[in-house]
C-alpha cells in the first residue's frame, strides 16, 4: 500500500520508519507547516526516503520543502492521520480523513479526536465512499483492543474496561510504592518524560475517556441492526473523574487492605465512565507503571485480558500498520 502520513510527531515518524518492514511505501509526509511528496521518478511504487524525512524533521523541524496540501493531494492508497488529538470539531484531522474518503481512499487514524467526537459524521462519510476507516491505534497503543472487539463481534461484548492511560497509571503506581504525594510523583514523571509539562489531558482522565468513548461507539454501532438506531457517544457523554486530588493517604489505606487504586475506564454500549477505582493489589487490572490493560467482557467467550504498551512511537505505529494490513 502507498501511504500518505499526515503528522510527524513520534507516531507519524515511526510509521514512516517502519512502513517498509510491513511491505508498504510512504509516498507523502506532512507536518503542520511542510511536506514531502515522492516525485515518481523511481516508478509508481518508489516512496520518499524515510531516513531523510526523519533527519530533516530532527535537524530543521520540517519534513520537506513542499506544502502540506501537496501531501493530502498525493497519489496514495491509505491516509495515515497522526496529527495531535483535538476536541470539539476535531479539526484539522477530521477534514484530512473526509478528504481521503471523498477521493475513495482509506484512512487509518492514530488521532482520537475524529473517532471520539464525530463518529456519526465519520460513519456517514464512509457510507458515501469506496474507502474505509480504521483506528486501532487510538485505543491502548499497541494493544489490539478495537480489532479484538470486532473479532468477537460488538453484539457479543457486554463491556470493555481497563487502564488506558500510562501517565496516570505511572503516577498511581509510584504513589503507592513510594508513599509519596501526587505533586512529588508528577514532578518525577515530568522529569522522566512520562508526563507532559501540562499533564491535564492525562491526569484529569480526558485521554482515557476519549478511548472509552471510541470503544462505546464501536460497541453501540457494531451491535445495532441499523446504524440509524445506534447511540453516538462523544466526550460530553462520559462521566469523568481524574486522579489529581487523590492524596497519598488514600493509597496507603488501600494498600493496608491488600488493594490499590487505578484509573479505570469502562465502556458499554450505553455508558462511559472513567474514575479512580479500588482494585485488588495483585489483581489483573493493577498493572504497573506505564503499562495499559484492556479487559473485554463477552457473552460467550468469558473475559479476555490484553495488556501491553499503551503509548510510544513504534508501539502505536505498529497498530497503525496493522490496520493498513487489514485494508489490503
Amino acid at each position: 500500500m502507498r501511504l500518505a502520513v499526515i503528522g510527524a510527531g513520534a507516531v507519524g515518524r515511526s510509521v514512516v520508519e517502519l512502513a517498509s518492514e510491513h511491505g508498504h511505501e510512504v509516498v507523502a509526509v506532512a507536518d503542520s507547516s511542510s511536506a514531502t511528496v515522492a516525485d515518481g521518478t523511481g516508478g509508481r511504487d518508489a516512496g520518499v526516503d524515510p531516513d531523510a524525512v526523519v533527519a530533516r524533521k530532527a535537524e530543521r523541524g520540517i519534513v520537506g520543502d513542499g506544502d502540506p496540501a501537496d501531501a493530502l493531494a498525493a497519489d496514495y492508497d491509505v491516509l495515515v492521520e497522526a496529527t495531535p488529538t483535538t476536541l470539539g470539531d476535531a479539526e484539522p484531522g477530521f477534514s484530512h480523513v473526509t478528504r481521503a474518503l471523498e477521493r475513495d481512499r482509506h484512512a487509518v487514524l492514530a488521532n482520537k479526536g475524529p473517532v471520539a467526537e464525530r463518529f456519526g459524521d465519520l460513519r456517514r462519510a464512509v457510507a458515501d465512499s469506496a474507502g474505509e476507516i480504521r483506528f486501532e491505534a487510538t485505543v491502548g497503543g499497541a494493544i489490539p483492543a478495537v480489532s479484538t472487539v470486532e473479532d468477537i463481534e460488538p453484539g457479543h461484548v457486554t463491556a470493555v474496561r481497563g487502564v488506558l492511560n500510562g501517565t496516570a497509571n505511572f503516577i498511581l503506581t509510584r504513589m503507592a510504592a513510594e508513599g509519596l504525594d501526587y505533586d512529588h510523583v508528577l514532578a518525577e514523571a515530568q522529569d522522566l518524560g512520562v508526563a507532559e509539562a501540562d499533564p491535564s489531558f492525562d491526569v484529569d482522565g480526558t485521554d482515557a475517556a476519549l478511548k472509552c468513548v471510541i470503544l462505546a461507539n464501536v460497541l453501540s454501532f457494531g451491535a445495532a441492526d441499523d446504524p440509524a438506531d445506534a447511540r453516538e457517544f462523544a466526550l460530553d457523554d462520559a462521566e469523568v473523574e481524574g486522579i489529581r486530588d487523590v492524596p497519598g493517604s488514600t493509597l496507603r489505606l488501600a494498600a493496608e487492605d491488600g488493594r490499590t487504586v487505578r484509573l479505570i475506564g469502562e465502556a458499554t454500549g450505553e455508558t462511559v465512565r472513567v474514575a479512580p477505582r479500588l482494585v485488588p493489589e495483585n489483581g489483573t487490572l493493577a498493572v504497573s507503571g506505564t503499562q495499559n490493560i484492556v479487559q473485554i467482557e463477552t457473552t460467550h467467550a468469558g473475559r479476555l485480558n490484553i495488556s501491553g504498551r499503551g503509548a510510544g512511537g513504534p508501539e502505536t505505529a505498529s497498530a497503525v500498520l496493522g490496520d493498513v494490513g487489514r485494508l489490503e
Binding site: E241, T250, R259, A275, R277, L278, V279
Partner: peptide, 12 residues
C-alpha cells in the same frame, strides 16, 4: 467528598 468505589464483580 471524593469516593473511590471498588470495581465490584470483576475482581478476578
Amino acid at each position: 467528598l471524593r469516593l473511590v468505589e471498588p470495581l465490584t464483580g470483576v475482581e478476578a
